[in-house]
């Protein structure tokens, strides 16, 4: 068994004149979570659709669980689960019927499909609603059912296309917990999201794409470090104090009553800065240490607003 669960080698997809995915390569080691981060239209969903055999790539190669997405589609389909940004469940069927149907279409025996449906309903706390039509479910319940439908065969590889888009914060936290549980069981996950917080929390590795191309990749920490070190923010009571502090500290940026110092020498920078300020009898009203966030990375890389509501 290969160590790489999902491999994209120079995948490209064009629709007539529109380039949805230009050239994207990525590799997801078995048992890890890759966060595919980008704004709407960046090509995230197209990547997922190609890797799940829903869409044929224009060129390039994709391997999922060691199988070619173009030529071994059935083997790929038997290795994966897909949960999309729309909860792709049938509104007129009950939760249980939806799961049994997906089980049957995965060619499970009827009894196995039924047992598995009951297990998943239990796991996703839907047992009470199991025999109600899905149209009576809340948004969060639908997403859980949709995720359950992706897990019917307990696939080793899971594709989650914006799994929490449009969910309220508590449903989102809830779903994150579920995904973390799956990952701790060894499931490989490729997750697309436009929420930086989500990638930061769930993903081992992050690939940022924009306009169908990879613009950055690495761990959340590596991506943040590209923006430099932690910044110390001193806030003073008056702009005059702030201006004097800026003089004393040297090589700083200031705006209004705030003076920023880059922590280039780690904690030592903070000690020196405080020493100098006290020598000049300047007392800051407030001190904060600010880590660069993925938002900063994202905005710097793509030059666009992520639309993260959090």
């Amino acid at each position: 068994m290969s160590d790489i669960a999902i491999l994209a080698d120079d995948l490209r997809k064009t629709f007539k004149d529109v380039v949805a995915v230009d050239h994207i390569s990525l590799a997801v080691p078995r048992g890890s979570v890759l966060g595919l981060l980008g704004v709407n239209g960046a090509g995230k969903t197209t990547m997922v659709r190609m890797l799940t055999t829903v869409l044929k790539p224009t060129s390039g190669k994709g391997l999922v669980n060691g199988f070619d997405v173009m030529h071994q589609q059935q083997a790929v389909r038997r290795s994966i689960g897909l949960a999309g940004q729309f909860a792709a469940v049938d509104e007129n069927l009950t939760g249980r019927e939806n799961l049994v149907l997906v089980g049957r279409l995965n060619h499970l025996a009827k009894a196995v499909a039924r047992t598995r449906a009951a297990e998943l309903l239990d796991q996703f706390r839907l047992t009470d609603a199991a025999d109600r039509p899905v149209r009576t479910y809340s948004g969060g319940m639908r997403r859980r059912l949709d995720l359950g439908a992706a897990l019917v065969t307990h696939p080793p590889i899971l594709f989650l296309d914006e799994p929490t888009t449009g969910l309220d914060p508590s449903s989102r936290l809830d779903l994150w917990g579920v995904i973390e549980g799956l990952v701790s069981d060894g499931t490989t996950v490729l997750l697309t999201t436009q929420y930086l917080e989500e990638a930061d929390r769930l993903a081992d590795n992050i690939v940022v794409i924009d306009g169908g191309l990879v613009v950055a990749e690495g761990t959340a920490k590596q991506l943040k470090s590209r923006l430099g070190d932690t910044v110390i923010e001193f806030e003073f009571h008056s702009p005059a104090d702030a201006a004097r502090a800026a003089d004393v500290l040297g090589s700083v940026t200031s705006a209004g009553t705030i003076v920023r110092v880059v922590m280039s020498e780690g904690p030592e920078t903070l000690r020196q800065a405080l020493d100098r300020l006290s020598a000049a009898s300047l007392v800051p009203g407030h001190v904060a240490l600010r880590e660069p966030t993925l938002d900063d990375v994202f905005l710097t890389l793509t030059g666009s607003n992520s639309g993260d509501p959090s």
Binding site: L108, P156, G186
Partner: peptide, 28 residues
Amino acid sequence: MSSTAPSFPAISTKPGVGLAWAVRDTQA
């Protein structure tokens, strides 16, 4: 990254080819 593949309790599905499966899927 750990190189040992997790022992996965994936539920095995039968190959989905052939007319009999097409009929069953259509029925479903």
